[in-house]
Design a protein around this nucleic acid. Structure first.
Lengths: 219, 219
DNA sequence: CACCGTATGTAAAAGCTGTTAACATTCAGC
DNA sequence: GCTGAATGTTAACAGCTTTTACATACGGTG
């Protein structure tokens, strides 16, 4: 990537450090990562990063953003590859499978994303992947409008006061997000195949999604 | 806890270190934690811990076990406080709410538990909390036997070959576990109330659980 | 083009940490 | 009581984060 280490000034050290840090974390994990390594890999001294980042956590925060961006791109691609042709439910499941794939392929990135709950920072990048799912749920709800409810659950209320479809999409997407995220986490800790070796995250996701969607829209 | 720092030998340093580490992590987080602090808090020198633990990760692993034990106790208590009298579904939800409470009250413990997916260690403690949920699901399935299926989904297969109820309980409990774990994680990252301020983890859990259970057993 | 403030790099150092090695003390069993 | 094992201390090393003082390049202004 960086070809000419000749000049005194690096030229694009800020980005190069993020890339270097990302590569190191992807291969050696976040505990092994040191700012010294990242600086060396970028071809500068160990103090140079402090011209661009307040401290180590600040740099890690930017790597986290990169990771969330990668997740978004994976989900977005999965969404487009499964749009319309197949059913809307299959599109939702495809997005979930892409989420699980990302957690598997970039497992160290995935861990980094959910480390140390940040105090208040709400980056838009962090949510962008979520909105891919929201859009798919909206499409699903358009094709599967709610039926009249005979259920004493909250759906009766929703039907009674004609909820904006957007709020319902957000709620369902949140539940699906929680489900797939939990499956990804449990899978990473080898907690799924402990009893039922056939119970992998992919099939669990598929059946759970169908259940949730059916129940949430048919109530 | 430790009262007499007089004798050369501590007497119970191995446990005292876990407790000290747990307290430090609970108050200052896992990144701030140092083995030196834990040793000082236990009243010994900074090299003493290495007589009982191979390295820092080894000590942290034991703290993790303590955290999983605490989670188990919380879930077990919630299970017993909500057994029989209320419906079996309510018992399941009570367990889930206890899970969310634990994640909130012991948020640094909760983060520690899911950090750095361990390579192969499968401690029984880690799973004990899960079995509380499995038992509740089994009780639910006993009270709500599966109906004859007209669904082309996998439930037809299950019904056809008379699945052992235990396998089904494990599968449903796993799905519920993933769901509640995902909700806990998203809540910790302030990702739930970003749009719908009324959508807290507790209510989302309640509605999702009902949906999943209804759909999974009514299929 | 010369000048100068600013941005960006280096070098050195302080202070902390994890970890090990050599040594000291206590315990437990014979 | 003696002896080996268990447990603790001190000292030291290497590596890391972060700061400070200094060096170099860039960019705009006269």
């Amino acid at each position: 990537m960086s070809s000419s280490p000749r000049s005194y000034h690096h030229g694009n050290l800020k980005d190069a450090l993020i890339v270097a840090a990302a590569e190191l974390i992807d291969s050696h994990g976040t505990t092994e990562f040191s700012i010294t390594d990242a600086a060396n890999r970028a071809g500068v001294s160990n103090a140079a990063p402090y011209r661009h980042y307040k401290d180590k956590q600040d740099l890690l925060e930017h790597v986290r953003e990169l990771a969330f961006l990668g997740l978004y791109e994976a989900l977005d691609q999965a969404s487009h590859e499964n749009s319309e042709r197949h059913g809307a439910a299959d599109q939702i499941i495809a997005i979930g499978l892409a989420y699980l794939s990302y957690a598997r392929d970039k497992k160290r990135f995935f861990s980094l994303m959910w480390e140390h709950a940040p105090p208040d920072t709400d980056s838009a990048t962090k949510m962008s992947g979520f909105f891919v799912l929201v859009d798919a749920v909206s499409a699903y709800l358009s094709n599967n409008p709610l039926e009249a409810s005979h259920n004493p659950n909250e759906c009766a209320h929703q039907a009674a006061r004609q909820p904006p479809s957007e709020a319902l999409s957000l709620r369902i997407a949140t539940q699906l997000w929680a489900l797939v995220h939990g499956l990804a986490t449990l899978e990473q800790h080898n907690l799924l195949t402990r009893f039922d070796t056939a119970a992998n995250a992919d099939t669990l996701l598929s059946t759970s999604c169908h259940s949730l969607l059916k129940s949430l829209t048919e109530c």
